[in-house]
Computed example of a mutant assay.
Amino acid sequence: MFSSTRRRTAGAMIASLAVLGLAACSSEQASTDAGSDSGDTGSAAEETISIGFSQVGAESGWRAANTKSIQDTLTQENGFDLSFSDAQQKQENQIQALRSYIQQGVDVLAFSPVVETGWDAVLEEAKAADIPVILTDRAVDSDDDSLYESFIGSDFVLEGETAGEWAVEQYDGEGYQVVELQGTTGAAPAIDRKAGFETAIEGSDLEIIDSQTGNFTRTEGKQVMEGFLQKYDDIDLVYAHNDDMGLGAIEAIEAAGMVPGEDIKIITVDAVKDGMQALADGKINYIVECNPLLGPDLADVAKKVIAGEAVEKRIVVKDKAFDQEAAVEALPSREY
């Protein structure tokens, strides 16, 4: 939780900003001292919260929508000074960015971790600097949950379970052979969506005959699917951990002279517009939503943390699931 010392410092800084008209976050200590000396107790300007955000990358339509939500919400007009970096799906880039933000003395750190593990050292550095951390979209695997204030995102295990339950409801008893297009190895959604799906199909006659990573990208999803089609003659169902890999699989299936959604069924996760259009067109059979519009929740949590208010450790957004009929109905007003 945000320390009482930092809250007192923030409060004094607000007073100093009103008196001196200063806006630079890097001048926090000087502003604090000046505010204390002035003794001005008049109305204070609203504090701008400096926030450093490290994004996974730009690997998919979902990620693009997630980035837009964050950048459109964390604006100067809404009381934020956002510094944004793209890690290009490399953990070392993300750690470097977080350390740079710590050195800059931002008020809040936020990031969507590339993978689950290997974060304790840099998060301990943030804690030592008294900078609160908010996780978005993906969680970290750490024994010390005091290293971050809150996680905001979807329940990836539930997403996998929802996909698997629908597959069992539709296809159990038909002996379906399933290939799985996994997300980035070691990433929370890849681990959890796989686990949830496997749990849901346990006891049915659906069988996962192969599972490989497509790194959440359309290009690699297509490449992996091409390999599956060369290796197996009896693929009945593709389970893709996101829409982009599913769309890549569609390209590979069509290039092989088959009809996606008919000759080979496809289930994906995300429900971005391109995926929903493919579902409406009958090329995908079912999509479990993963809502990328996390900017408003991140803004709300950041403001509460800075104000010293209690926040939930885990904030799970509500997701839907779509068949073809539901996709046709939802598309005209789809925000992402």
Rank of each mutant, 00 (worst) to 15 (best):
G175A: 06
K273A: 08
D323G: 12
Q182G: 06
V178R: 03
D244A: 06
A280C: 05
V133N: 01
K90E: 15
D107S: 05
D300E: 15
E289F: 02
T219S: 14
K222M: 11
L279I: 07
F216N: 01
G183T: 02
E329Y: 06
T73C: 05
D281R: 07
D236W: 04
D233I: 03
D107L: 04
S38D: 09
P260K: 13
I49W: 00
F216G: 01
D72V: 07
K68Y: 03
L298G: 04
S100F: 08
A163M: 11
E289N: 11
I131T: 01
D145A: 12
V311A: 14
A23S: 11
D86A: 09
A278G: 02
Y148C: 08
E226S: 13
T32C: 14
S85K: 08
Q29I: 10
P132L: 03
G295T: 02
L181P: 00
A249S: 10
D243M: 06
N291I: 11
A187C: 08
A163T: 04
A24F: 03
P189T: 02
G11Q: 10
K283A: 07
D155N: 15
L237V: 10
R334C: 03
F197P: 01
F156A: 04
A64S: 13
V122P: 00
D143Q: 11
K68W: 07
R8D: 07
D319E: 15
D210W: 01
M245V: 12
D145F: 12
I201S: 10
R314Y: 12
G275I: 04
Q324L: 02
V224C: 04
L74Q: 09
A12W: 11
S112D: 14
H241F: 08
E309W: 08
A330K: 12
S50E: 00
A302F: 00
T162L: 13
T32R: 13
A326Q: 13
P113W: 10
D33V: 10
T217F: 09
V328A: 15
A121W: 05
D297P: 05
D205R: 00
D86Y: 02
D234Y: 06
T73K: 09
I95F: 02
N242D: 08
Y171T: 01
V179F: 04
E149M: 06
A15H: 10
D323I: 02
E161D: 13
M245T: 12
A126S: 11
F151A: 00
D37S: 14
I191Q: 15
A302Y: 00
D120A: 09
G164H: 08
I131L: 00
V168A: 15
E169R: 03
